[in-house]
Amino acid sequence: MVFSAEGPSVRELAVQALSSVERGYDLLAPKFDHTPFRTPDGILRATADALRPLGLFERGLDVCCGTGAGLGTLEELCVAPVTGVDFSAGMLAQARRAHPEAECVRADVRALPFAGGFDLAVSFGALGHFLPAERPALFAGVHRALRPGGLFAFPVGAPQPVMSGSYWALLGFDLVMRARNAVWRPPFVMYYRTCGLRPVSDDLRTAGFTVSTLPLAALGHRRGSPRYGLVLARKAAAS
Rank of each mutant, 00 (worst) to 15 (best):
D108P: 07
L138G: 12
A89T: 14
S123C: 06
V122A: 08
R110I: 02
G84C: 05
L127I: 04
H143G: 00
C104F: 00
R97L: 14
Q94E: 14
S123A: 12
L138S: 11
F139W: 11
G117W: 03
F124T: 14
F114G: 12
G128T: 10
A98G: 05
E101D: 12
V85W: 04
F118D: 00
P113D: 02
A80P: 06
A121T: 14
L120A: 01
G128Q: 03
L120V: 04
P148V: 07
E134V: 01
A102P: 12
R96T: 11
S123F: 11
M91C: 08
R96W: 01
D108W: 12
G128W: 12
E103K: 14
Q94C: 10
L138V: 10
Q94T: 01
A137W: 03
L127W: 10
R144Q: 15
A107S: 09
H99N: 05
T83N: 09
L112I: 06
F139H: 13
L131Y: 11
G149K: 13
A115I: 02
P81S: 06
A98Q: 13
A133R: 15
V85R: 02
F118R: 03
S88F: 09
A80Q: 15
A95E: 01
G149F: 02
C104E: 05
G117F: 02
